[in-house]
Amino acid sequence: MLITTLIWLENLPPFTSLRSSAYAYPIVLALHVSAISLFGAMIVVTDLRLLGWSFQDCSISDLIHQLRRPKWFGLIATATFGFLLFACKAEEYYYNSFFRVKILLFLLIAMHAVAFRRGVYSDPAKLDHSLKSPPHAKLAGSLSLLLWVAVLCAGRGIGYVPGRAGMHYH
């Protein structure tokens, strides 16, 4: 069922042409990497602040509130370009172990967001009262750093898995 959907997806007209174009695919890849730089830096900046390692003269709540919209924009841009890369080789990606690890990491990141939502992200003003960053904020920051670095490595790994024979490309 899933694999039928993936074969249908990769053979939709925009994705067949993206797959066969010599330049469109690397352009989308370069846009994906550019968006990663912006999005990744915003994540690192937030995490470093939660850890108390940088930007100490800006309060945690100030930083989180100001970056909320730009971060969403960065995530949507990165995910959109990433989806295009996936969609034109959806069937192959399904079998790719690094891609599977990456999806698993995204699930962990979603769990991280839910777990620290109340304590850190939804009401960061609470964290401004103490001079030092509280332990659970530091934990949120360090786990986030670890998870996103793992996503980066898994993402790079995808390209190293050799292409499979017998894919249903039209």
Binding site: I36, L38, F39, L63
Partner: peptide, 27 residues
């Protein structure tokens, strides 16, 4: 390589976005 340039380019982009009036506008 990717982690390094993403940090450098992304952090510079945050300064650039601020020059454009986007992002960390309070600083």
């Amino acid at each position: 390589h990717i982690a390094g340039f993403a940090l450098a380019i992304g952090m510079t982009a945050l300064v650039d976005l601020r020059l454009l009036g986007i992002g960390l506008y309070k600083q």
